[in-house]
């Protein structure tokens, strides 16, 4: 007996590609763009969202039969807010400089549309285990885009990855810089995040024409 049935595996793999929360469902863009100037911040943000999504989906799914539908948004917000407070406190305790970089964006996980969107669309109608998988899958799909964007922005903008200078030293002119390469500081500015995501969407939809939208 496999741990995951075929249907369950699909819950995780679908959001990674053809039903990606960012590029297809258009959820959770806000935080995806703001913190991707560095790869490290993107990774931490993805882990935080995976944690909040997975457990939030389980909690909501367990409570789905007792939540009155009129006040469900408030209930959902309280659940997410509690989970986010945990993340925030952990970050402040163990990675203080990083929590300063992420700043208000940790709090903004609460209003990350992916979380509310998946609560509404999935957790309110499904059993806890499946909801957990759905949460993890969507958060991974979100994380993948975040990490791709963070990778390119840090590499092209600052010439570093996770703080290591992978392209050589720009001051002493070693590595690529010796042959006249220059960092493109523009990549670190906020508008470029949007353009990078736009390009990812372009690549994804060219590879899979079924996803192309009407104008």
């Amino acid at each position: 007996m496999a741990l995951l049935s075929k249907k369950d595996t699909k819950l995780i793999t679908d959001p990674l590609t053809d039903n990606n929360p960012i590029t297809i469902q258009v959820l959770g863009i806000c935080s995806a763009l703001a913190i991707t100037a560095e790869l490290k911040a993107s990774i931490v943000m993805s882990i935080a969202v995976i944690f909040v999504m997975g457990f939030g989906n389980v909690v909501i799914s367990l409570m789905r039969n007792v939540i009155p539908s009129k006040i469900r948004i408030i209930v959902q917000l309280i659940v997410v807010a509690s989970l986010v407070i945990i993340v925030d406190q952990v970050l402040k305790a163990f990675a203080y400089p990083l929590s300063k970089t992420l700043g208000a964006f940790v709090g903004l996980i609460i209003t990350n549309c992916i979380i509310m969107g998946r609560f509404e669309a999935f957790a309110l109608a499904n059993k806890p285990w499946r909801s957990f998988l759905d949460g993890i899958g969507n958060a991974l799909g979100y994380g993948v885009i975040l990490i791709i964007v963070g990778f390119f922005r840090e590499l092209l903008g600052a010439g570093t990855l996770l703080g290591y200078q992978v392209l050589g030293d720009p001051i002493t002119k070693t590595g690529l810089y010796a042959i006249g390469y220059e960092n493109n500081g523009f990549m670190l500015l906020s508008p470029m995040a949007l353009i990078v995501v736009g390009l990812i969407i372009w690549v994804q939809r060219s590879r899979n024409p079924a996803l192309v939208e009407e104008n």
Binding site: V197, W202, V212, E213
Partner: peptide
């Protein structure tokens, strides 16, 4: 492939 969402992202950028 850029229709809809993609072009909106790039315009916003």
């Amino acid at each position: 492939a850029l229709r809809g969402l993609g072009i909106t992202f790039i315009i916003t950028g």
